[in-house]
Design a protein around this nucleic acid. Sequence first.
DNA 1: TTAAGTGCAAATTATTTGCAGTAAG
DNA 2: CTTACTGCAAATAATTTGCACTTAA
Lengths: 139, 139
Amino acid sequence: MTTAEQTIGSNWLATAGLRPTRQRVALAALLIGDGQDRHVTAESLFDAAKNQGEGVSLATVYNTLRAFCDAGLMQEVTVDGSKSYFDTNVHDHPHFFWEDEAKVTDAPSDQLVIAQLPDAPEGAEIASVDVIIRLRRKP
Amino acid sequence: MTTAEQTIGSNWLATAGLRPTRQRVALAALLIGDGQDRHVTAESLFDAAKNQGEGVSLATVYNTLRAFCDAGLMQEVTVDGSKSYFDTNVHDHPHFFWEDEAKVTDAPSDQLVIAQLPDAPEGAEIASVDVIIRLRRKP
DNA sequence: TTAAGTGCAAATTATTTGCAGTAAG
DNA sequence: CTTACTGCAAATAATTTGCACTTAA
């Protein structure tokens, strides 16, 4: 990991008022270091950190992802009942879920047009609208 | 539970080629007995069965819900990472998720109009599109 | 009679938490 | 210094499974 990526990560943490610990800076660099949006599970991020020789415990990865979500730096994507996915893109946008690989990617949000949406029932308001496009390998 | 509801449940099982055991007929009657679509978790269905004095183990409720889904009688709705919800309405339709109550209901599908949908990436095809409208109590 | 279904209790999986030690402001 | 963070190991929660018993066909 370069110093540049660490700096980007530190700034990202700073904007949310989170302490830039060694572990968080390392994970932040993995998540946003190259400017690309990323979709991870706790396990996949843990493995990525390990592959870089970064010592971070799995519990800390879980706690850190929660902290990032609470701080609004990331969002959880609910696509699969058995695992939690986290997305560095916090804007409202649709997702592809590759069922064969159990992998999440962004779907192009400009290609999704919702012309009409059900009204929220009495006493409720719409917090967000999730659109998951489930994919399978073409036969 | 009336005999009529049991009969409806038995027929429902028969259409899927599932053996109408006492437990399955009881659960089926709870699920589709009154003709209304239902959204349950394993736990909520287990409680409902218990309240009717039907002896069904929790493991059997889990196994039965899986069997119903595998048979195409129900579908799983992924709205909450920590629990599985099951829907007796197998048609493609949007859902409301009431975040405060952790409850799922159907959203009126005629009020959802998707004018444009992202194309499936190369080599993939769209299996289904989930639309979850997350609600919160109005303040 | 025989293959499928049931019910426990034990196993599994993903995730959270308590708490003692470590480090950031 | 003081409070937040980390890491382990133990706890939790939802779900699945192994296996002996029961039941539908």
